[in-house]
Design a binder for these strands. Structure first.
Length: 221
DNA sequence: GTGTGGATTATCT
DNA sequence: GATAATCCACACC
């Protein structure tokens, strides 16, 4: 059994579509309450089962569409491996992994993870979740379960002192690829011709994705 | 099981 | 002033 190690910088310096697929099956880890807290930190972790790629300047659904750079989306312009957390609908946080390199504002939205470590704490963070499949099956749900908010905006997944990172699970990539489904991204109907592009990726028949195959989805292998 | 609408506020125009 | 990369409750089947 190979030891789980954080993915390195080069892993994140690829285009957002490739990264969105490569992140499936990898483990998102949050040390709670954090490395610097007095008590021993607990691992809140889950394997990524659903992602969406955002392609930056030309992508009308991306926050950086048209190249408009604001205080809000500044983190998307940083190097691959950084995090972009935004607040929306007056109550929800969503997290993205920044792809590519500095000044290339592309990212991958983490839409769902399959919880595997620290479920007790996650349940406390999400009292409204009736079943464990409701714990992290949505971009705002997983942020709530892992207690990720804007304090994590612009943090670096490769910061050795940070409490958020992604580990290589050494999953069988052929297996992951054969189960990868693709379809339109969720909640971007306003994005004209970009609304229907197959930029959402998720694992077939995995009960922890936010919603399983719509008729428009197809196998990506 | 499916569908509809309300919550609630930072951010940008 | 309008909108949002969402979630949840409740109605109705």
């Amino acid at each position: 059994m190979l030891k789980a190690m954080p993915l390195d910088r080069s892993f994140y310096r690829q285009d957002s579509v490739s990264l969105a697929k490569a992140l499936l099956g990898q483990r998102l880890v949050r040390l709670y309450p954090g490395r610097s807290a007095g008590t021993k930190a607990v691992r809140l972790a889950g394997d990524i089962v659903e992602t969406e790629a955002y392609l930056g300047v030309p992508d009308l659904a991306a926050h950086t569409a048209g190249g408009r750079r604001t205080a809000r989306n500044e983190a998307m312009y940083s190097d691959g491996g950084h995090i972009y957390v935004y607040f929306t609908y007056g109550m929800h946080h969503c997290m993205n992994v920044v792809a590519s390199v500095v000044d290339e504002p592309v990212a991958v939205l983490i839409r769902a993870i399959e919880p595997v470590e620290g479920l007790e704490v996650m349940r406390q963070h999400r009292p409204k979740a009736r079943k464990d499949t409701d714990l992290c099956s949505g971009p705002a749900k997983l942020c709530q379960a892992l207690a990720i908010d804007r304090a994590y905006n612009h943090c670096d997944l490769l910061d050795a002192t940070g409490d958020l990172f992604i580990e290589d699970t050494h999953a069988d990539r052929k297996m992951i690829t054969s189960r990868t489904m693709t379809g339109p991204r969720i909640g971007v109907a306003y994005a004209k011709e970009w609304a229907n592009k197959p930029l959402r990726f998720f694992l077939k028949d995995n009960p922890y994705v936010s919603r399983q195959s719509e008729s428009k989805s197809k196998n990506d292998a």
